[in-house]
Amino acid sequence: MNPNITSLYEIANKPVRKIIGLMSGTSFDGLDIALCEFRASGLKTQVKVLHFSSETYPSDFKEDLKSIFAKRTVDFEKLTLLNAFIGNYYAELILNNLSEWGLSYEDIDLIASHGQTVFHAPKHQRAADDYPNATLQIGDGDHIATKTGIITISDFRQKHVAAGCEGAPLSVYGDYLLFSSADENRIMLNIGGISNFTFLPAKHSTEFFSSDVGPGNTLMDQFVQQHYPGKYFDEDARIASSGSVNSELLDSLFSNDFFKSDYPKTTGPELFSLAYLSKAISKIGLEKLSNEDIMATLAAFTAKSIVDAVRSSVASKGAYEIYMSGGGMHNPLLLHMIEEQLGKKLKFSSDLGIAPDAKEAVLFALLGNEAVSGGQTNFGAHPGVPSISMGKISFPK
């Protein structure tokens, strides 16, 4: 037997596995690295976060990512080079963190890497054509495995697409396995570049669902980067808090068919771009609206898209609690708007034992655990959540 297969077999049969989960979102904040200890799999999964680090990307790297992100036409050479570069870069960050944590690569069983999304193309978001749903993440797993010496599982979203789905959101799998409750309806809300949530009915019911609901931080971040050189986001919502919500612009932003389509659905910055904002502004002739008022309205856009989704799809199912994660939880204006409209105090995934900043990385570590030791859970028969094993395996040798 190939010794790589032997190693994988031995890891799959361990009572305890140490897995590093990697997550880099569409906001380009940096790489989240979560070292997790797993016992069992499926609904019996037990996870303990041993270490967590969030490595901020340097500005020149962010600009490189922005140059190829969510664009129909890019420098194909740069895209190809970044695929390899990101794999090596992730590996360097992992090895640096292992050194800081007093650990060796030999102490780690697996790496589970989400990769860097560069384009998301669900069929519903395109003009009619003969192509299927598609999504693309870069940051080659072979480079990560070879440079770290650790078996790496990556490219999780492709199997989801191959199974007839849209490649997102994948957090539903980890949300169900880790956070479903016997006696509480829960909404696991993640506000990253895009907002999405998983609804988890009580009693571990398989009647859960997960969906993107609209923009998270992406439009606000893009607007700040365009109009405030040197800034990547609206820290503490200072810009938005100094403006006022414009109701005409808010209505115009909601005029897209995405908000009329049924759940589950996915989207991305390919739709919610500065061109989308510009079209909404031009449609109502408000080109002289102040930057502050535009930012306040974009915050309201994100908040209302979340609130409308909760009200239309979840609120009729009884009492529920909302547990947040993602960069949007650091926006005080956004949180205030959501809480005020729902009349409910938001909670955080830390209330359930997983720090919200680490949650997405932990969930991909869990998918890595499922890839080698799970695969037995029936997630029910409903759209967007096929009972499949995801991830491609890269061996270090």
Rank of each mutant, 00 (worst) to 15 (best):
S59A: 14
D155N: 14
P383H: 01
V307C: 08
F259V: 00
I68V: 03
G375L: 02
Y173D: 01
E184A: 08
N2M: 06
S312V: 12
L366G: 01
D129Y: 02
G230N: 09
L274G: 12
F28A: 13
T56K: 15
I294V: 15
E235W: 04
Q125I: 09
I306F: 10
L277G: 13
N217V: 09
S113K: 11
E106M: 03
E63Q: 11
D351C: 12
H382C: 07
T135E: 07
P122K: 10
K288T: 14
K18F: 07
R17E: 04
S53H: 15
E100W: 07
D293Q: 09
N4V: 02
D357T: 10
F395N: 09
G87S: 03
V362Q: 03
I388G: 08
D32E: 14
E235N: 09
F301L: 14
R157T: 06
T80F: 04
G343P: 08
A296Q: 09
I138C: 08
H120R: 02
N2C: 12
L65Y: 05
H330K: 15
T26H: 09
G285P: 04
A299S: 15
D308M: 12
G164P: 03
K359H: 07
L277E: 12
D357L: 10
N196H: 03
L82C: 03
S104L: 13
R186D: 01
A112C: 07
S273H: 14
I338F: 02
K345G: 01
T117W: 05
G326A: 14
D308Q: 14
I153K: 03
A128D: 12
E77G: 04
R311W: 10
G115W: 00
V49D: 13
F85M: 07
S104C: 05
V385N: 08
E287K: 09
T45P: 02
Y323K: 04
T206W: 00
A300T: 07
D221Q: 11
P383E: 09
D107S: 02
L82T: 00
L82F: 05
T45V: 05
M390P: 01
G326H: 15
Q158P: 05
E10A: 01
S195A: 15
I20R: 04
S211T: 15
G268W: 05
P229V: 01
F38P: 02
K260V: 01
D60N: 15
G375W: 00
S313C: 12
N88T: 08
S313A: 13
F233S: 12
F179P: 14
T206G: 01
D109K: 03
Y228L: 11
T56N: 14
E321R: 15
I94C: 05
F76C: 14
E92S: 08
Y90G: 02
G21C: 03
P264M: 06
A300R: 08
G230I: 00
H382A: 11
E10T: 04
A237E: 07
L81P: 11
V385R: 06
F197E: 01
I191Y: 13
D212Q: 06
Q125P: 10
R157D: 07
